[in-house]
């Protein structure tokens, strides 16, 4: 498990930023890669814990449930009012279908 640890290269930063919908400028890639590598290097100490330490898989705690009763979701309009662009009470986004690419 420890033999082929990925290093956070600038290419990895770019790939992860793409997944996270963030833009990392070209000239900042190596700084981000350096910082994240140092953090991930620290985290890698978890890999040193021997497999036998884990034993059986722990029982997951029960998820509490509540009665499935409809109730007014008052507040949805107030929440929607926070959208930066609205039309007829709905949030507006750039055209998606038929927008070309």
């Amino acid at each position: 498990m420890t033999s082929e640890r990925p290093v956070v290269t600038p290419a990895v930063v770019l790939e992860v930023a793409e997944l996270a919908r963030l833009h990392v400028p070209e000239d900042e890639l190596s700084r981000w890669a350096g910082q994240l590598s140092r953090i991930v290097g620290y985290i890698d100490q978890l890999a040193a814990i021997p497999e036998q330490a884990f034993g059986g898989s722990p029982a997951a705690p029960a998820t509490p449930v509540r009665p499935d009763v409809p109730r007014p979701g008052d507040g949805d309009r107030a929440l929607a009012a926070n959208a930066p662009r609205r039309l007829h009470g709905y949030g507006v986004v750039p055209r998606v279908v038929g927008a070309g690419s």
């Binding site: 919908r21 929440l79 929607a80 926070n82 959208a83 930066p84 662009r85 949030g91 986004v93 750039p94 998606v96 927008a99 690419s101």
Partner: peptide, 14 residues
């Protein structure tokens, strides 16, 4: 994500 809250920085495409 700029759709439901806060300032929207671009409307070029989604």
């Amino acid at each position: 994500d700029g759709v439901r809250y806060g300032p929207r920085a671009s409307d070029a495409d989604l």
